[in-house]
């Protein structure tokens, strides 16, 4: 028996919006500690890892570990039927091949349930080793989204370089080049507006912008984004979900031939 009640149902709607274009089908893993997902995009260039910890749910019951294969496009269709203020409850019986999404309006005057068919998904689970990153940049998520969008009108790839000067996002294309430098800035009114750069070593890596733009769909989940870079490792683009967990995107770099 599985029953997860999320008062802030809009969080789940935002999570689906953030990942549905990157991943078609995925297994949601439910255990006593939380609700999680790990999946790669179809070309195995990017990986998404989601964690929603049990303490973030108002009610969390998961009697035994369960893996539920879902088509994210179909799941998104169902969650779009929930209001932004609705409470969302996920329910599944042991051995069932369906999951039920229950939507309750805040004043309890409307209750809907949507039952979705589960699917068998044969996906490999990857071990993500703990790594020391050469540079970690925390910046406003909207700023990062803006930079990725702007650069993708000029070129297809972005070079992200961290030096003691700051973090530089560069691209080039047929019409010209673009460089955007963000310096550390902690003298802001609100902590979420700060740009904080922790650098152990300078690092410079190249990534496909279309993936970065896809990751930026998670912007509504968090005011800030954390970008962790190490040479010869996938970049980690992390959006923390307040009090609950995170969505992390890993993107393999482009490398010199």
């Amino acid at each position: 028996m599985l029953e997860l009640r999320l008062v802030q149902g809009s969080l789940l709607k935002k999570v689906l919006e953030a990942i549905k274009d990157l991943v078609n089908d995925a297994n949601f893993d439910c255990s006593a500690t939380g609700f999680s997902l790990q999946a790669m995009d179809s070309s195995h260039v990017a990986l998404v890892a989601l964690l929603l910890r049990n303490e973030g749910f108002e009610h969390y019951r998961c009697d035994r570990n369960i893996s539920m294969g879902m088509n994210l496009g179909n799941m998104n269709k169902m969650l779009k039927c929930a209001g932004n203020d609705d409470i969302i409850t996920l329910k599944a019986d042991d051995g069932s091949d369906t999951v039920t999404f229950m939507f309750e309006s805040p004043n309890q005057d409307k209750i809907a349930d949507f039952e979705m068919k589960l699917m068998d998904i044969d996906s490999e689970h990857l071990g993500i080793p703990e790594a020391e990153y050469h540079a970690i940049v925390r910046m406003p998520s909207a700023e990062f989204a803006r930079i990725c969008k702007d650069l993708s009108s000029i070129g297809d790839t972005v070079v992200i370089s961290v030096t003691k000067e700051g973090v530089k996002f560069s691209t080039k294309g047929d019409i010209g080049t673009a460089n955007i430098v963000c310096r550390q800035n902690t003298t802001v009114d609100k902590p979420e507006e700060a740009t904080v750069i922790e650098m152990k070593e300078p690092v410079s890596l190249t990534f496909a912008l279309r993936y970065m733009n896809s990751f930026a769909k998670a912007t509504p989940l968090s005011h800030t984004v954390t970008i962790s870079l190490s040479s010869e490792l996938p970049v980690v683009v992390e959006y923390k979900i307040e009090d609950m967990g995170y969505v992390r995107f890993y993107l393999a770099p482009k490398i010199e031939e």
């Binding site: 790669m40 070309s43 195995h44 260039v45 990017a46 990986l47 490999e124 689970h125 990857l126 071990g127 993500i128 080793p129 790839t157 190249t206 496909a208 010869e232 490792l233 996938p234 890993y250 393999a252 770099p253 482009k254 490398i255 010199e256 031939e257």
Partner: peptide, 14 residues
Amino acid sequence: QCLQSRISDYFGRD
């Protein structure tokens, strides 16, 4: 010219 690497080049099966 750059080549796109893949996630499996860095992370192994669990």
